[in-house]
Amino acid sequence: MLSVPIETQIMFAGILFFLGLVGVLVRRNLVFMLMSIEVMFNSAGLVFIIAARHWNQPDGQVMFIFILAVTAVEVAIGLALILQIYHHYKTLDVDAINKLKDNK
């Protein structure tokens, strides 16, 4: 089995996380922002898997299943909100949805 050093593995997870973060910051469409958040979640999950394999402990895999469940819930709520926002504003542009600001 091909053995990849752990530093490379974590670096890979870090790149994934950074890509997700950039996606959240630069995308203006709410759906894409949600997707980018998923990427960030997955990179965090990946670190758990890497750690589990490194120390031969199953806890990290348990944690990953846990994260999976949480992201599923988060996506459900996030999509429901996005649907409502679309109904209300007829757009998904996050810069257009800025009613929560100081009225000065």
């Binding site: 996050v94 949805i97 800025n98 009613k99 929560l100 600001k101 100081d102």
Partner: peptide, 8 residues
Amino acid sequence: PTQNGKLR
């Protein structure tokens, strides 16, 4: 002014 309503 920092509360400008822009999520990003």
